[in-house]
């Protein structure tokens, strides 16, 4: 999915613990009728989600050229090949950089910006200005990734049509024509990362600002009386107080980072020479251009399994933290 808006995860699985939940009292006490309401949703999810998952998991144990060709049983061949596939490993190295750009930097910057907006701007200049600025930070989150990507690729165009090159030409006085996206790995990957940060930053800002409203203002006042400066107060109070929100942001953006596709597809198309591949993009390329859909299915399955594992770990950690609190 596009890393536009994150869906909060890990909430619904929890249920109130009481034994007497809301229920329509039935004379015959039968729950059977409720199944009828699940039918449309269950049929749809089986066709659109579960069938493709099962099909690709199965296909990862076969070689298949696609179309009318016969499937040939491959055992674990695809999985073994994947483990030593340089392009796949490279794409996972890039995921580390993607996590920096989509999770770590936005979360840290988001903490500072949210605290500044809430604390300094909100108090000194009024709530209107702070919510206007918050909205500005949020704007890239609802821009289609394709539109944001095309905008950035215009700014980074390799010739003198590109904004950045034109700007550098004016500043340095000599003609600058850097091929940011297609020239070399470092500038291409850095460009992708900048786009990701630009898109992601608004999400933590909005969530953290809402979280800060829960924090008791007396905490800050007490710290102020103790002579702590703004940054000390920020460091000591903000992260611990809004830890649950930091956790949710980290979870949802990590999952989005593992699945990232759009920024790479639009900005670099995986280049130069496949160096900016991410796993999703690699799987997509193999499905479209590869000769073995079984192998493509193996890549896609590997990402899916990884995403599910990360989600399970995060939910477990969260549940444990909550039990400790209670």
């Amino acid at each position: 999915m596009t890393p536009t808006l994150q869906r909060p995860a890990g909430k619904a699985a929890k249920r109130p613990a009481q034994d007497d939940p809301a229920r329509i009292p039935q004379r015959d006490a039968s729950k059977r009728g409720y199944w009828l309401y699940l039918i449309p949703g269950a049929v749809l999810v089986s066709i659109v989600i579960l069938y493709p998952i099962v099909r690709n998991l199965r296909l990862s144990f076969f070689h298949w050229r696609g179309g009318r060709a016969e499937e040939q049983f491959a055992g674990l061949e695809n999985w073994i090949a994947l483990a030593s596939d340089q392009e796949f490993l490279q794409s996972f190295q890039n995921i580390v950089l993607v996590i920096i750009a989509m999770v770590i930097v936005p979360t840290l910057l988001g903490l500072v910006i949210a605290a500044l907006l809430f604390d300094v701007v909100g108090r000194r200049f009024g709530a209107k200005l702070s919510s206007f600025l918050r909205a500005t930070y949020y704007l890239p989150q609802i821009l289609p990734i394709a539109v944001a990507g095309v905008m950035f690729s215009w700014i980074l165009k390799p010739n003198s049509d590109g904004v950045l090159n034109q700007f550098l030409t004016t500043v340095t006085g000599s003609d600058v024509q850097i091929n940011w996206l297609g020239g070399q790995y470092s500038t291409a990957m850095a460009s992708v990362m900048v786009l990701m940060i630009w898109i992601q930053i608004g999400y933590p800002v909005v969530i953290f600002m809402a979280a800060l409203q829960r924090v008791d203002p007396q905490l800050y006042e007490a710290a102020e009386l103790d002579g702590a400066n703004w940054f000390q107060r920020f460091r000591a109070i903000t992260p611990p107080m809004i830890q649950p929100e930091v956790f949710v942001v980290a979870l949802t953006t990590t999952i989005a980072a593992l699945k990232v596709f759009g920024p790479v597809f639009i900005l670099t198309n995986g280049g130069p020479s496949k160096s900016t591949y991410v796993p999703s993009f690699y799987a997509y390329q193999e499905f479209i251009r590869g000769t073995d859909k079984g192998y493509a299915a193996t890549i896609a399955s590997a990402i899916t399994i990884l995403v599910v594992i990360v989600a399970i770990i995060f939910i477990r950690v969260q549940n444990r933290a909550e039990r400790k609190e209670a």
Partner: peptide
């Protein structure tokens, strides 16, 4: 609920070809 949750977790390239 978990089965529905999968729809949210699954990367789209897993759905694309089938």
């Amino acid at each position: 609920v978990l089965a529905f949750l999968m729809a949210n977790l699954v990367p789209q390239e897993m759905l694309f070809d089938p």
